[in-house]
């Protein structure tokens, strides 16, 4: 029973679903932010966590790191690297959202750029981010490179 449960939990298909989903989310989030860096800079400013000199550089660079990581996960190349960066970013985002909620800020999340569709941050955003983080950790630990470009380069699954 426990072996069955264990094999289900570490199923390569589960990891594949998580990887494709996270890859899509990161590419989408990155493209939305990169399409309006000024709007994203506004949102970073409203969090009041970064010093002013860091806001524009982060608004310029962060979306592209998200896009690269998303593509890495989606097409399955350097998966563990992609999962590690994704999980690290999601950890930082979770801290930022948590701190902002604790401070009572009513600001746009900016998770998917400066759209007008998102309401102010709530605990839901923190829960969602934590779920994504769990998926990232799962992919890092259990991904077996199903439908992944990493296989094309002939690396063995360790």
């Amino acid at each position: 029973m426990s072996t069955k449960l264990s094999s289900w939990i570490t199923s390569p298909l589960v990891s594949l679903v998580f990887r494709l989903f996270l890859g899509f989310v990161f590419v989408y989030a990155g493209v939305m932010k990169a399409s309006d860096p000024q709007g994203f800079a506004n949102i970073l400013c409203s969090y009041r966590l970064l010093p002013e000199w860091m806001i524009n550089p982060v608004a310029i660079l962060l979306p592209w790191v998200e896009i690269v990581v998303g593509v890495s996960l989606f097409v399955g190349i350097w998966i563990r690297g992609g999962a590690l960066v994704a999980s690290s970013m999601l950890t930082v985002f979770a801290f930022v959202i948590g701190i902002s909620l604790a401070r009572g800020l009513e600001i746009d999340c900016g998770c998917f750029g400066a759209t007008n569709c998102e309401d102010s941050i709530t605990w839901f955003f923190l829960v969602r981010d934590t779920l994504f983080l769990a998926m990232g950790a799962y992919v890092f630990l259990f991904d077996q490179r199903i439908a992944a470009l990493d296989r094309v380069f002939g690396k063995q699954v360790k």
């Binding site: 860096p37 979306p63 592209w64 790191v65 998200e66 896009i67 350097w78 690297g81 960066v85 890092f140």
Partner: peptide, 25 residues
């Protein structure tokens, strides 16, 4: 071994993202 491999690739992905962001901007 997974962490080692992950860190190496993670650094490369971050550098690629930073270069792309700089170039596009």
């Amino acid at each position: 071994s997974r962490i080692r491999e992950g860190i190496g690739h993670a650094v490369l992905l971050i550098i690629l993202g930073l270069l792309l962001g700089t170039g596009v901007n």
